[in-house]
Simulated assay, not measured.
Amino acid sequence: MQFSFAHNNFNVRDLDRSLSFYKEALGLTESSRINAPDGSFIIVYLTDGVTPHLLELTWLRDWDKPYNLGDNEFHLAFRVDDFDAAHAKHKEMDCICFENPAMGIYFISDPDGYWLEVIPAK
């Protein structure tokens, strides 16, 4: 028996804002979508177009407050081929929330406060 990663899920309050952020910040695009027949939720799967791993964004119609991310010690990490250009883009977007120059990494925060690690390709 062997398991493989399929996707990670983040719940989001404003689906359009999140889709726009992930497209601009990380180049992720929609690969599929599930709309609840009663309109109570929408699930959108995002792809990087390279790996089979997906990011699932879930919007819940009746959720009316920010999500409690606790200590937010979890995150997704993205490798980037041009670290300096990515850093400049994210600085311009004003979404960098933490930098660790000694480790050569930084984190960006999405519209709901989820942290995304950016690491250079090695």
Score class of each variant (00 low, 15 high):
residue 1 M to A: 11
residue 1 M to V: 03
residue 2 Q to K: 15
residue 4 S to K: 15
residue 7 H to V: 00
residue 10 F to R: 08
residue 10 F to S: 00
residue 11 N to D: 03
residue 12 V to I: 08
residue 14 D to H: 15
residue 15 L to G: 07
residue 15 L to C: 12
residue 16 D to T: 03
residue 17 R to N: 10
residue 19 L to I: 04
residue 20 S to W: 03
residue 22 Y to E: 05
residue 22 Y to A: 06
residue 23 K to F: 07
residue 24 E to I: 11
residue 25 A to F: 11
residue 25 A to S: 14
residue 25 A to C: 07
residue 28 L to S: 07
residue 30 E to S: 11
residue 32 S to L: 06
residue 32 S to I: 00
residue 33 R to S: 10
residue 33 R to F: 05
residue 33 R to I: 05
residue 34 I to M: 13
residue 34 I to H: 12
residue 36 A to E: 04
residue 39 G to W: 04
residue 40 S to N: 14
residue 43 I to W: 10
residue 44 V to S: 10
residue 47 T to V: 02
residue 48 D to M: 12
residue 49 G to D: 03
residue 52 P to H: 13
residue 52 P to S: 08
residue 52 P to D: 12
residue 54 L to T: 03
residue 55 L to P: 09
residue 56 E to H: 08
residue 57 L to V: 04
residue 58 T to D: 01
residue 59 W to C: 01
residue 62 D to H: 13
residue 62 D to V: 02
residue 65 K to L: 02
residue 65 K to W: 03
residue 68 N to F: 05
residue 73 E to N: 15
residue 75 H to F: 13
residue 77 A to P: 06
residue 78 F to Y: 10
residue 82 D to K: 13
residue 85 A to K: 14
residue 86 A to P: 01
residue 86 A to H: 08
residue 88 A to P: 03
residue 90 H to I: 05
residue 91 K to E: 09
residue 91 K to M: 04
residue 92 E to L: 12
residue 97 C to W: 02
residue 99 E to W: 04
residue 100 N to S: 14
residue 101 P to F: 03
residue 103 M to N: 10
residue 108 I to F: 09
residue 112 D to W: 02
residue 114 Y to C: 09
residue 118 V to L: 15
residue 119 I to W: 05
residue 119 I to Y: 06
residue 119 I to K: 15
residue 121 A to C: 13
residue 121 A to G: 05
residue 122 K to N: 03
